[in-house]
Design a protein around this nucleic acid. Structure first.
Lengths: 251, 251
DNA sequence: GTGCCCCGTTCTCCCATCCAGAACATTTTA
DNA sequence: TAAAATGTTCTGGATGGGAGAACGGGGCAC
């Protein structure tokens, strides 16, 4: 991203936020390390962010506040796709007893909008807002399969095709072959590619013009997803949920 | 909040974010109005934020991205209180079939960490990240009742005691009387104070040193909460959920 | 108790940099 | 086809950001 006239002061503030996020609660001096700013500058930025609620101070330690959740939460709530999909993701989680997820694409990355845990659900390291490379999950592949080819090219150009595990996708050819399959059968599968022993089934959600809005999925341990279920009951339920969302979006 | 050396450039960026949040997707010129900045300045800030993922551009329109949800979501996930309370809030929603909520205090305001809808749940205007004045909800009163008196004084000093409806708390005396009651019986109630016909029951969650960490609640239409239930089954369930959380936090 | 060190905070002045305003490139409107 | 929007780029001058030094206070060693 080539910006002609970046606001350097703002970039310093954003770098500070990132640093604070990685380190967790800490003092001014500790933050200064690795930030290419002096103590007074860091202090000025911190107090400014505190004044506006983005940063909290307890004793001599600073940390990020929940203001980010406020802004992010209100953005999410204002998304029609989220509002309509939310109850269906919950139903899917309750029906299957497993972990159900909702993903959208933003700037070439997948962003989890929500996750809902059924009775037996495994606890993954995902959370609302979490980003992943699209090619590494069933959700992402469901989305990629329904984006224009040139967009997919752009994305792999920009975000790469890093392999998470030996079994995961790592080349352009593998990816496009996989996406063909996804388009043919209507749903995407991750059989241990991201995490050994974890199976995910995902379906795209499209609007009335066939543009993909996002994807919905179920994740479960392989021990509870038989080979028949992997191409039977699970895709059926996921596709059904995706279909309900599509119907509600298009009235 | 009196900041000695505020970073004015950062404050401009934050003002722009707020403006963009209120207006939703819009162009540079529209944003410029009501921001006391020229077109070029607004443009510079927007492209800088875009470069770092906080702002998205589609066509000629700019809007906030899900980066805020990413930062906020990771903050929330890192909170022990949220991690432990989350399943209990879900259980509470499922058992009662109503809307269950989790609130923490930050800078004198209540912040919803999550909400979980049961089968019959009403749909309120709350969402994860949403802020409210503490004195206007059962959740807030449950928290206030277990903060030191001087802290409560500070908060009403700083945040005021605006009445939401004629029935809601609007004076210092009313508030402290109410908090006494909450302490005595162990839970807080909102009987139509915030919204006509809505009843909420909330209980505080405290750690082993008796410090209040947050509060958990159920909200339901008055038609489904009889006068007996209001001081019977509902508080019982809410207190039980709060108790489970406390046990799990203190090991 | 004393001295030392390290922390967060404040101050000041110089230089980086932010940005008004004008110019340019496109698109929309009349 | 002209006029009036829009987003984007450019430039120099005033603004204000922040390095470095100084201050104040809390904690630790001895």
């Amino acid at each position: 991203m080539d910006v002609k006239h970046p606001v350097r002061t703002t970039e310093k503030t954003l770098a500070l936020i990132e640093e604070l996020r990685n380190r967790g609660p800490c003092g001014v001096t500790e933050l200064t390390q690795g930030l290419d700013m002096g103590k007074s500058a860091v202090h000025n930025h911190l107090t400014t962010l505190q004044k506006h609620g983005y940063v909290l101070k307890t004793g001599d330690e600073y940390q990020l506040g929940l203001k980010f959740l406020e802004v992010g939460g209100s953005m999410r709530k204002s998304m029609e796709f989220y509002q309509i999909a939310e109850p269906e993701v919950k139903s899917l989680a309750n029906e299957t007893g497993e972990l159900a997820n909702l993903l959208v694409e933003e700037q070439g990355m997948g962003v989890y909008l929500m996750r809902s845990k059924g009775e037996e659900a495994v606890d993954l390291d995902t959370y609302a807002g979490r980003r992943t490379n699209l090619h590494t999950t069933a959700l992402g592949k469901a989305i990629l399969a329904h984006l224009p080819d040139e967009r997919v090219e752009e994305i792999i150009e920009h975000r790469g095709l890093e392999r998470k595990t030996p079994r995961s996708i790592g080349s352009r050819e593998e990816l496009f072959e996989g996406l063909d399959v996804v388009r043919d059968r209507g749903y995407a599968i991750d059989d241990g590619e991201r995490l050994e022993g974890l199976r995910c089934i995902a379906a795209p959600v499209k609007d009335s013009t066939d543009k993909v809005l996002g994807a919905i999925s179920v994740s479960a341990p392989a021990s509870r997803v038989s080979d028949e279920d992997l191409h039977g009951e699970f895709p059926e339920r996921v596709l059904s949920a995706a279909n309900v969302i599509e119907l509600n979006i298009n009235y």
